[in-house]
Computed example of a mutant assay.
Amino acid sequence: MTEQDGLTVGRTATLVGVSVKTLHHWDAVALVRPSGRTRAGYRVYSAEDIARLHRVLVYRELGFPLSEIGRLLDDPTTDAHAHLTRQRRELRERIERLEHMVSAVDRMAAATRGGMQLTAEQQVEIFGSDWNPEWVDEAAERWGDTRQWAEYRERTTELTPQDWREAAAEHETLHADLAAARRAGVEPGSPEANTLAERHRATLSRYFDCTHSMQVCLGRKFVEETGYTEYYDGLAPGLAGWLRDVIFANAIAHGVDPATAVWE
Rank of each mutant, 00 (worst) to 15 (best):
E96P: 01
L239K: 10
A82S: 08
W263S: 10
G227F: 05
E138M: 13
D245R: 06
L204W: 12
E90T: 05
H54S: 06
A140C: 06
H175I: 13
A180D: 12
L62F: 15
V216P: 08
K21M: 04
E198P: 01
R220D: 07
E170S: 12
Q148H: 05
H200I: 01
A111E: 15
E141Y: 06
A109T: 14
A259F: 04
T77Y: 15
S19F: 06
P161T: 10
A80G: 10
M108V: 12
W26I: 00
M101N: 04
S213P: 11
I95W: 11
E141R: 13
G144F: 08
W143Q: 04
P76Q: 15
V32A: 11
A150I: 04
G255Q: 05
R199P: 05
A253L: 13
A202E: 14
A179P: 13
E134Q: 11
E96G: 07
T14L: 08
L62A: 13
V29M: 14
R43S: 07
S35T: 13
V105Q: 07
G17I: 08
D49Q: 04
G70A: 06
E198D: 08
W131L: 09
G241W: 06
R244I: 00
D49I: 00
W242Y: 13
C217H: 11
T260R: 00
F248A: 08
H24G: 03
L196Y: 04
A109F: 02
A120Q: 11
R43L: 00
T78A: 10
L72R: 03
A80S: 11
R43V: 07
L57V: 09
S129I: 09
M108L: 15
A140W: 05
V136S: 03
L174M: 09
Q117E: 12
T22S: 14
R52L: 14
I50H: 13
A176R: 11
M214Q: 06
A181C: 07
T12D: 05
R89D: 09
E224K: 03
A261D: 11
T226D: 12
K221Y: 11
E134M: 02
H200K: 06
Y231R: 05
E99V: 01
R244N: 01
D177H: 11
A168L: 06
Y42L: 07
E225R: 14
A111Q: 12
P133M: 06
H212A: 03
L239E: 09
E90H: 13
G144H: 03
I252T: 15
A261Y: 07
E172T: 14
V186D: 14
D75E: 05
R60D: 13
H83M: 08
A181T: 05
A251Q: 04
R97F: 09
L118V: 02
G144A: 02
P65V: 02
A80R: 15
A240R: 04
G219M: 07
D49P: 03
L159G: 10
Q4E: 14
R182Y: 10
G6D: 12
E154G: 01
T8W: 15
R55G: 00
L91Q: 11
L73I: 01
R206I: 07
D137R: 04
L72M: 02
E3H: 03
L159A: 09
R33E: 15
E134R: 00
R153D: 09
Y232G: 08
Y45T: 00
P188T: 04
E90P: 07
L53Y: 04
R55Q: 11
E192D: 14
Y152C: 03
T226P: 00
R107K: 15
A150R: 11
W263K: 00
D27C: 01
R165N: 02
A111I: 07
S46I: 02
